[in-house]
Simulated assay, not measured.
Amino acid sequence: MRRSTAPSVVARTSARGLTPAAPVDFTEAWLRNRRLSEHTRAAYRRDIAGWLTWCSGADLDPLRATFLDVNGFARALEASVDPRTGRLLTPATVARKLSALSSWYAFLVRLRAVPANPVTDADRPRVNRDHSATLGLTPDQVDALFTAAHADRKPSAPRTVAVLALLADLGLRVGELVSLDVADLGHERAHRSVRFTGKGGRARRRALAPDTAAVVDHYLAVRARDQRVPVEELTGPLLVTATGARLDRHAVFRMIRRLARDAGLPAWDRLSPHSLRHAFATTARAEGVPLEDVQDAMGHADPRTTRRYDRDRHNLDRDPAYRIAAARAARAAGG
Rank of each mutant, 00 (worst) to 15 (best):
L164Q: 04
S156E: 12
G198P: 02
L170I: 12
V163S: 02
A190V: 11
L108F: 06
G186Y: 01
D143F: 10
V142G: 05
N128L: 14
T197S: 07
V178Y: 05
R189F: 12
T120N: 04
W104K: 01
R195F: 13
R110P: 05
G175V: 09
E176I: 09
F107K: 03
A162Q: 05
A162Y: 07
L145W: 06
V163A: 04
L135H: 14
P158W: 08
W104Y: 15
P139H: 06
V109G: 00
E176P: 09
S103E: 08
R153M: 14
N117Y: 12
K154L: 15
L135Y: 07
F107E: 00
D152C: 07
L89P: 00
P155W: 12
V114F: 09
V174R: 07
T93M: 13
T90P: 01
V119E: 06
A151G: 02
L135G: 05
R159D: 06
S156L: 13
E188L: 15
R96H: 11
A190M: 14
H131D: 07
A113V: 03
T138S: 15
A148H: 10
L111K: 14
G198C: 11
R195H: 11
L172A: 01
Y105W: 13
S179P: 02
V127Y: 10
L170K: 00
V119I: 13
T134W: 09
V178P: 00
D130P: 03
R112S: 06
H187R: 13
R153G: 08
A148V: 12
K154Q: 14
Y105D: 02
P139R: 06
P155V: 09
L167D: 01
S103M: 13
T160N: 10
A100K: 03
A106P: 00
P91W: 14
D184C: 14
S132P: 03
A133S: 14
R110H: 14
T197K: 03
L177C: 09
R189M: 11
L172T: 02
G175A: 05
F196C: 03
A100C: 15
